[in-house]
Write a protein that binds this DNA or RNA. Structure first.
Lengths: 342, 342
DNA sequence: TGTTATATTGTGAACGTTCACATTGTGAAC
DNA sequence: GTTCACAATGTGAACGTTCACAATATAACA
């Protein structure tokens, strides 16, 4: 800083309170063995001088920064449109704050270098540990972190070799439940709107597996012609649905692998003059906040996004503190929610 | 960290290269006066040992952390639904990365303490400067930062007493252009969907002023019964529009003060069996990415959100480095974009 | 060849905190 | 009264880097 606001240090406080600086340190860190009277005097001095301990200086001897990094290997523009991801971030933020940690954001800068976001974090040794959001690009980054023995937890299905860990919802079971519901309602031809055919995350694979499993249980076989692809956005869901409706024998129900595409599907269905759910039932996935507000309110599979973020963060703290994670994979429940679109 | 991965320090590099540690420091910081041959030797040693300078240690003598804070005094759940804000963040992130800074996120934790997000940043002396997103709550936080002589820049209309600065778009002129367009098309009764009546940000005031100004230029007076309130979300725009349509003499055009509410308005209009823009024209504000994809594509006022974020970040760096900002208020152009909804 | 200026390198201290250990004080037990 | 154990506090060093300055090597000049 140019204007060198001079800092209030632990020594200033010590002088003010008439004790040694080490005693002040003990008070700050809630160490035992400080006479209550002394503690009070120090606390008072801290208050009077408006002292704030310096994180960087503190981290030096402790080899810690009290910062965790959040790597999101998307470009920021794109990623911030995903409500599910944003819910995760909110969970992460809450948990980090509760533990006195700060959250550093590292996104892909669009430099073309897939590992840039990871590199930047490593380059500065700035974080005690890293949370990685799984994307098609994140696996190489995780490998890099592992090689440097950097504590990290992955949000998604990425490789969770100890001591790292992966946290995700039970996508397979959620998709299975959703499909079973449609089957129970008598639907036999169910259209699937999947994520992009290339560069997809594993979660989509899992959802598809759950879907096929349910079909199999009902003695049906999966018909690949009923599966189309989107890119998670609403318009892509709309387009995908138009494809499905154009089939010679179109589906009577559509299961979109996220809510935004499901909303796009409903638009397309209406634009074609059909009704939801009467003519065609629609189910989404994620249960983003907008799902309940939609008209009709969306039947969907709730992923505990926020909780996943918080859980991953907690596990990361465990790893940082040397406690091994409960498992290399933590699976959170996915809950099927029946509203009005199916 | 529990597993004390021993760090490679500047001294290890020095030993490896057969020079003093200060020389290594000089190489890292691109200081002059290092013989090319020596520099090469050091660089090679850095490479060989995979050395990464430690940010915290570096910041100690320099009184800098190379981290900037981004305070968003909303709860994370809420804020992350705002595409305009997210575009700003993306601009901030890009600019910070380009300058070798890291971005720390500080949101409201829902503790009820309005200043929590600010306090946390100050408490740890963790950031060199702060970017503040203007909200109804942010003004007190800015005052706090100013009192502590902390460098900050506000994204919005918040008080920009030197050396701090406020960056925002020309909301007034944008709204004026939009209204003029409607007037030119012959509309005489224009409904306004404003932000919430309490706790609104100043940008909304400005938009309203621009609107009234255009009316006045056309010799019309502003009719308060045509103004209703939303909370920036799409459903709220829908509800607000229902109110407008229920008026004895409903408007022939609607100007919503953000795109999401404009989208809600279009839904409501259609649900009422009317057509956009034939029966009722709709204009939004922001030009969020979804606006162009909407059907019909939304006529709106583009705010250079991403650029605003980048500009604010640049100015913050200037302040941190002791250069005064160009002004206490930087106004970016707002561009009226005609698509199909009006 | 000696002198001086300059380019290059090295040395000690500092940044603000914590850690390991040394010192002092206090009361209990002998 | 001595001794001892333990509580409370103080001291020196360390964390990894940069800064200011001192020291040396090199080149340039007379």
């Amino acid at each position: 800083m140019a204007t060198t606001r001079k800092r209030v240090t632990i020594k200033d406080v010590a002088a003010e309170a008439g004790v040694s600086y080490q005693t002040v340190s003990r008070v700050i860190n809630h160490h035992a063995s400080v006479r209550p009277e002394t503690r009070a005097r120090v606390l008072e001095a801290i208050e009077r001088l408006n002292f704030r301990p310096n994180l960087a200086a503190r981290g030096l001897p402790q080899q810690r920064t009290f910062i965790i990094g959040l790597v999101i290997p998307y470009e920021a523009d794109y990623l911030f449109r995903d409500p599910h991801l944003l819910a995760q971030i909110s969970g992460i933020d809450a948990e980090a704050n509760a533990r006195g940690y700060n959250l550093l954001l590292s996104t892909e800068g669009g430099s073309g270098d897939d590992l840039e976001a990871f590199e930047r974090l490593l380059r500065n040794q700035v974080a005690d540990g890293v949370l990685v959001v799984e994307t098609a690009r994140s696996h190489a980054g995780c490998a890099l972190l592992a090689r440097e023995q950097y504590p990290f937890v992955s949000l998604g299905y990425a490789p969770g070799a100890p001591p790292s860990c992966a946290v995700h919802a039970n996508d397979r079971e959620g998709a299975r439940q959703a499909t079973l519901h449609l089957l129970k309602k008598g639907h036999r031809r169910i259209g699937i709107i999947n994520g992009p055919p290339t560069g997809a995350v594993q979660a989509m694979e899992e959802r598809l597996t759950g879907h096929r499993q349910a079909l199999q249980e009902a003695g049906l076989t999966f018909d690949p012609t009923l599966m189309v692809y989107g890119d998670y956005t609403r318009p892509s869901g709309q387009r995908a649905t138009e494809q499905l409706l154009a089939l010679p024998d179109p589906p009577t129900a559509i299961f979109a692998f996220n809510d935004r595409m499901a909303m796009g599907a409903i638009w397309a269905i209406r634009a074609a003059g059909r009704r939801v759910p009467d003519d065609i039932a629609v189910i989404g996935f994620d249960d983003i906040p907008a799902a309940a507000d939609f008209s009709p309110p969306l039947t969907t599979v709730r992923q505990p996004s926020k909780e996943a973020g918080a859980t991953a963060t907690r596990i990361l703290f465990d790893i940082i503190e040397g406690n091994p994670p409960p498992a290399t994979e933590v699976v959170l429940p996915a809950e099927f929610i029946i509203r009005e679109s199916a």
